[in-house]
């Protein structure tokens, strides 16, 4: 199973992320989104952060969760390396993130403006979760 893949879209970037559990699919969606900006595997885990996100339903939780990474980049220059211990319960998500706050050390491809609801889905098919998101560039 591929953790995530990119699909064609005229102006912006569309990806699908997969997982055996919803938590794994959300984690892979965070990696897919970060990889638009920079290769997340190359980011050094110099600091650790805890995040909590609460939303009204699963889709908005995904939107708010992914938006966290854009807020962290703009406000703290934080680039993601790993999402650890992600849990989702009653539309409340908690996770531990590792990453680095020195973007000048890495090759940056492009900055994402926003997460969008366009063509967003969270599906469970044949025991696997699939998430689709378009981000605005």
């Amino acid at each position: 199973m591929k953790p995530y893949e990119f699909l064609p879209h005229t102006a912006d970037t569309k990806f699908r992320a997969y997982g055996k559990t919803l938590e794994e699919a959300f984690t892979n969606a965070a990696y897919a989104m970060t990889d638009v900006i920079t290769d997340h595997t190359k980011i050094k885990p110099t600091i650790e952060k805890n995040i909590t996100v609460t939303s009204e339903n699963e889709e908005s939780l995904l939107y708010d969760f992914l938006e966290q990474f854009l807020i962290l980049i703009d406000s703290e220059s934080f680039l993601l390396n790993q999402v650890k211990e992600l849990t989702i319960k009653n539309n409340k998500l908690t996770a531990k993130l590792t990453g680095d706050t020195h973007p000048e050390k890495y090759e940056i491809n492009i900055v994402i403006k926003a997460v969008t609801y366009q063509e967003m889905f969270i599906k469970k098919e044949k025991g696997q979760y699939a998430i689709q998101v378009i981000v605005d560039i």
Binding site: F6, L7, P8, I137
Partner: peptide, 8 residues
Amino acid sequence: GRVMSRHE
């Protein structure tokens, strides 16, 4: 106006 995806 774009005609081609960033991916492509």
